[in-house]
């Protein structure tokens, strides 16, 4: 059946079973390959997207439950040519080794900074706790989120 929802600011309609995973619909129906399949069991965080601004595991989320809602993926942040301040901060800190976990981490970081523009180190750690990185890039990732927070605060009218 047809399911309508907003993806990265655009109204989309997909013909998929309601029980199909949001991840499969994003990747195979909408061609948005930035959201990644890691474990498929809500254990690694590679597939994190925002549903109405809140982090959600796309691997187990049934697409029927996002009907009428707003979904944001890493493609909705920015592009390689015009990166979002978060993406730019990850590049500035070179916060990535293999990079497979990054798009999910970026989405959780986005949700954090949207609700808390000036998080402490502990709050960043807590927000990213559900994400695994097996390369060991954790310290750079934390610095990148803090750098992005500072950039976004500076750009904001006082």
């Amino acid at each position: 059946m047809d399911i309508a929802f907003t993806v990265n600011g655009e109204a989309r309609q997909v013909g998929a079973p309601e029980t199909a995973s949001l991840l499969e619909v994003l990747r195979n129906h909408l061609g948005l390959m930035g959201t990644r399949y890691g474990c498929g069991l809500e254990q690694c965080g590679c597939c994190m997207v925002l549903v109405d601004g809140q982090p959600a595991y796309a691997c187990t989320r049934e697409v029927g439950t996002v009907a009428g809602r707003t979904v944001t993926t890493v493609e909705g942040l920015g592009t390689a040519d015009k990166p979002h301040p978060l993406q730019q901060a990850f590049l500035d800190e070179q916060a990535g080794q293999c990079g497979y976990c990054l798009s999910g981490i970026l989405m959780s970081a986005k949700a954090l900074l949207d609700r808390n523009p000036d998080p402490s180190r502990g709050e960043v750690v807590e927000a990213l706790d559900k994400h695994l990185c097996r390369c060991g890039t954790h310290q750079r990732i934390l610095r990148a989120v803090e750098r992005a927070a500072a950039t976004l605060r500076d750009g904001r009218p006082a």
Partner: peptide, 22 residues
């Protein structure tokens, strides 16, 4: 000199892995 990795921009913005080529 520390230069930015050439493969990272794609990895923070969209398709970048063998899994993503369909």
């Amino acid at each position: 000199r520390s230069v930015p990795r050439i493969d990272l921009p794609a990895k923070v913005s969209g398709a970048a892995f063998v899994h993503d080529f369909a």
